[in-house]
Computed example of a mutant assay.
Amino acid sequence: MVTSRRTPVGRVLAYLESTKNLAGGACGLVGLGLTWAGVAGAYWPVVVAGLYGAGALIAPPARIVTPCFPDPARRLGGVREDLDRLREYVGEVELPPAAEGKLGELLDVYAALLEPGWPAEVLAGEPEAVHALSRAIRLDVPEAVDAYNRARWWTRLNPGGESPERHLERQLSVLSEEAERVTADLRETEARRQQTHTTYLEGRRES
């Protein structure tokens, strides 16, 4: 049974296994050796305890293992697979021509941003852009299409109000604007990178 390090017993066991305790114990053995050699005299308990404490203080702290998170490329691979599934889903829904065209353009932009290679590398370095793209593919677009499909059925039974087609077009317009902002931010990232390299080269020439 594994004892949690957060409990008192777990903390004691963890300390007994730590490098600090091992180093202190080694120094304490040196103190015992000095005692047996007659160097420590009557103060041998103080000597042993002092050497143990010194060894425990100078020993490096235990290294806590860093949690392993999936690298950005693997995360984007999952988003890319979700985009493929989204395309299949959208292909089965009957959409008005205007919305269908706008949605097709939007999905093409997503695909371009997720294209394996340097475009995806730039995207992977921007967590907010990855979040926005993942949210749009996994939540926003499916919800927009599904809501339209359901509302259209009810509208046929009870006409009136703003048409589902109009709502869908408005939603896709907002998502297209968001995609444009993401693309512009990534373009700005590359522009800053280029400018930084120019500044570096010019500074090296002047030095």
Rank of each mutant, 00 (worst) to 15 (best):
I64G: 05
G38F: 13
V2D: 13
P127Q: 13
G77T: 01
E94L: 15
V122P: 01
V141P: 03
L57Q: 08
L123M: 06
E143F: 08
E169Q: 02
Y52A: 00
V90C: 11
L139V: 10
A54E: 01
T7K: 05
S163F: 08
L113W: 14
A37E: 11
R75P: 05
Y89S: 12
T3F: 09
V145T: 04
L172R: 03
D185Y: 04
R75K: 10
D82P: 02
H167Y: 15
A23P: 00
A179I: 01
P164W: 05
R205H: 04
I137S: 01
E178D: 06
L95R: 03
G25K: 07
L57G: 04
L34I: 02
E177D: 12
Q194V: 09
D140V: 05
R138F: 01
L34K: 01
A184C: 02
L123G: 05
R80L: 08
I64T: 07
L168Y: 11
E121F: 10
G160T: 14
A144G: 06
Y89M: 14
D108T: 00
T19I: 05
N149S: 15
A49G: 11
G203I: 08
G33M: 12
L172A: 13
P159F: 09
T183W: 00
V12T: 10
S4I: 02
H131N: 09
P96W: 04
L175E: 06
G10I: 13
V12R: 00
L106R: 05
L186C: 08
E188I: 09
A147Y: 11
A26K: 03
V174W: 02
S18N: 03
A120I: 03
A191N: 06
A59K: 00
P61K: 15
E143H: 09
L22V: 05
P8T: 03
E115Q: 08
A26I: 00
D82V: 01
A136W: 13
E169R: 00
R193D: 02
R87L: 02
E105H: 12
W44S: 11
H131M: 13
E115T: 02
E202V: 10
L107E: 11
L157V: 11
T66P: 07
V130N: 07
L133P: 01
E190C: 13
L114G: 10
E94A: 14
E178K: 04
A124D: 10
A59S: 00
